[in-house]
Design a protein around this nucleic acid. Structure first.
Length: 227
DNA sequence: ATATCGATTATCT
DNA sequence: GATAATCGATATG
């Protein structure tokens, strides 16, 4: 029953970019509405188009959210969070990994959505190469894009390359967010993962039971909300 | 299936 | 000098 979708050609999906107004809202609304949208990388001559569907995100609420990078106020590192909506905030963490956010709220107000897991649809071989993963069966696919560090590596996302780029513009940097009319199935909301502040707030949004959601069975929303 | 731990560096105190 | 919105490997039930 786990629906491992057959990989499709990039040509069969025609994503359209989103408007800035989509992102100029409360991060909780943006997070909820981003589920089912597409992350797209157009690397130009460097390789094929990469497409993956967003299946897990977290909302960060800005300066008043103790878990947010914006909590300490504006710094050089987090400046994008305070800028115009729809732009990529990329940070480096644990000496090893990049993570991707999109800025929310109107210009001047912080707030963002963290991309935590994707379901890969096109360019899988390229993603596998970027990840250093050998694809021998459907069971290997979550290794590509299940987890914030993994999806960033699969899409070649780095701070130098992508921080500050406009995710509503297909040309700008080649990284953007698209929509194809896909309607979200059941959605679950849980606490955020991997943080030490404000750990009890329900700000993580997932496709219930989707096999690409990170965090294991306890966090994929397929289990009743008891112990 | 769950728990613990080491890696490795930009950023801020 | 401590910490971090993680990952992969290893250990144990």
């Amino acid at each position: 029953m786990p629906q491992l979708k057959t990989p499709v050609s990039a040509r069969t999906i025609r994503p359209l970019p989103l408007d800035h107004s989509f992102f100029a809202r409360d991060p909780r609304r943006v997070a909820r509405d981003l589920l089912g949208k597409l992350l797209v990388r157009d690397p130009g001559a460097r390789g094929p188009r990469l497409i993956a569907r967003i299946v897990e995100v977290e909302a960060y609420l800005g300066e008043k959210d103790p878990a947010a990078h914006a909590a300490a106020g504006r710094t050089l590192r987090n400046a994008v969070l305070f800028g115009p909506p729809g732009h990529a905030y990329v940070y480096f963490i644990y000496g090893n990994h990049y993570c991707l956010n999109v800025s929310c709220e109107p210009d001047g107000k912080a707030g963002s959505v963290l991309f935590r897991a994707l379901e890969p649809l096109a360019g899988l071989e390229h993603m596998a190469q970027a990840r250093g993963v050998k694809l021998s069966g459907p069971k290997d696919l979550p290794q590509l894009t299940s987890g914030p560090g993994r999806l960033a590596q699969a899409f070649g996302i780095t701070r130098d390359r992508d921080n500050g780029c406009d995710l509503t513009q297909p040309q700008s940097g080649g990284l953007w967010i698209g929509q194809d009319g896909y309607e979200a199935p059941a959605i679950a909301v849980t606490c955020r993962i991997g943080i030490t502040q404000a750990t009890e707030m329900p700000l993580r949004y997932v496709f219930s039971g989707n096999s690409f959601v990170s965090g294991g069975a306890r966090y994929n929303g397929s289990r009743p909300k008891n112990s």
